[in-house]
Structures are given as C-alpha cells and as structure tokens.
C-alpha cells in the first residue's frame, strides 16, 4: 500500500450536459497529511467533496481512496466504504437532534462495523475521546442544548471515533470565534496524531492557513473554474 490515501487523476465532472464544474488533472493527499484546501465559494468545493466522499460519480478520470477506485464500486458499497474510511465535519448543524451527545458520537460505529472494531470498547473510547476534547460533561445532554462551539467538538468526536483514515472538515470553524477556532484545530491535530489520520480542511478563511503545513488552492487545482469566477 502506498502512502497516498486520496488520489484524483484526470477527474472531470458536470451535471447532465451542463457546464464542467470539476476538471482536476491530479490531486494527491498522503497519509497523515494536514492539508488546507483553500476554496472560495463558486470554485466547485461542494462538488469536489461530493466526489471525494463517493456521493457523486465522476464523468471521467479516477478517484481512489486508500488505493480503492470508486469507479469499480457500486454506489451502495461506496456508501459503506465512506462510513468505514471518512470522518466528516460540517460547518454547523452536525448533530442528529434526537440523539444524545453520546449517541451522536457512537453513531458511526453503529453504521460501520470496521469503525466499531477499531474503536474497541465503545463506551470507554467515547469517554476518553470526550475527556480529551473537553466535552465529558456533555455526553448525556440533548444536542440542542449545546453551544455552537460545543456542537463542533462533538462533531469532531463523532468524525474521529473509530479512527477513519481521512477526516474531511468543511468549514468546521467558520461558526466559531477566533479563539475557539485555534483551540478546535489544535485538538483536532492532536487527535489525528494519535492514530495517524489525514486531514483535509476546506475553508475560504485564509487566516487559518498558517496553522497548516500544506496549503492548496482549489482555484489552481480545478481547471474548470477561472480566477474570476471564484470570489
């Protein structure tokens, strides 16, 4: 197995007969990398994440995660593969409103058998993870009672549980104030270091990129959009 966890090769995507949204000749992410993907709106950010997570299918080219090519997989097996290998953090409203904090964090391990196995004893793993992220006392709470900052930490815990190879964070800090952004990122980095996870951090907020060893701009990566169309 190579140390490349995500590889895009000559990937093109457009919705039926409309304009090309994604044209990426080459994009590789190595294991353990922390990548800041700069993506102003209108650059195909959402589409690219849909492709990486296997929700959308490329019109041509190859996308492979952990050396497995999506092109050879059915949409159903892409779904379960996503559950096994990807942790996803949204900008906000990450949590299922009718589950408790603990149930939210445990959910990926109920959906993916692999993640459940990697998590070991689920309850003690959640306890330890919550301890490190500073959300121990929230575990029994209803998610709607949490502040945005607390919600994002719970979302991070849920993305991290069961050690998925890649964490995709889609503007996870934009709803937080500055101090919280930095703390949040540091916690995320620490957790990833524990098991050697890879982070793809997508944001239009350039102020955070100093914290990342590697920065790629979607404007340069995606040939389908010009400098002008991205804002």
């Amino acid at each position: 197995m190579s140390d490349v966890v995500l590889a895009l090769n000559e990937v093109k995507f457009s919705y039926q007969n409309s304009t090309l949204l994604i044209d990426i000749p080459e994009f590789k992410v190595k294991a353990g990398e922390r990548l800041f993907l700069y993506g102003p709106s209108g650059c195909g950010k959402t589409t690219l994440l849909g492709l990486i997570s296997g929700i959308l299918e490329a019109n041509s080219g190859e996308i492979s995660v952990l050396d497995r090519s999506y092109a050879k997989m059915s949409s159903r097996s892409r779904d379960s593969f996503r559950g096994d290998t990807l942790g996803y953090i949204f900008q906000m409203f990450n949590l299922i409103p009718y589950l408790t904090v603990r149930e939210n964090i445990a959910l990926p391990c109920q959906i993916s058998r692999q993640r459940r196995q990697r998590a070991g004893n689920l309850n003690s793993t959640i306890d330890a993870l919550a301890q490190r992220l500073g959300i121990s006392d929230l575990l029994g709470r209803i998610v709607t009672e949490l502040s945005v900052g607390q919600q994002q930490r719970v979302a991070a815990a849920r993305a991290l549980i069961g050690d998925p190879a890649i964490i995709i964070a889609d503007e996870p800090t934009s709803a937080l104030d500055w101090d919280h952004r930095e703390t949040f990122l540091k916690l995320l980095f620490e957790e990833l270091d524990r098991y050697g996870g890879t982070l793809i951090f997508v944001s239009h907020d350039q102020s955070l990129k100093a914290m990342f060893p590697k920065v790629i701009s979607l404007v340069e990566l995606n040939n389908a959009v010009g400098e002008a169309s991205c804002t």
């Binding site: 779904d79 559950g83 990450n94």
Partner: peptide, 16 residues
C-alpha cells in the same frame, strides 16, 4: 433533510 445529509456522510445509503 439536514438529518438525512448527516446520515449519508456517516455511510448511510439512500436505500437505508
């Protein structure tokens, strides 16, 4: 719809 998108991100298929 939000809930469904979250479930999908966790590996839940549309058939589920």
């Amino acid at each position: 719809r939000r809930e469904m998108a979250i479930l999908r991100s966790l590996g839940v298929g549309a058939s589920v």
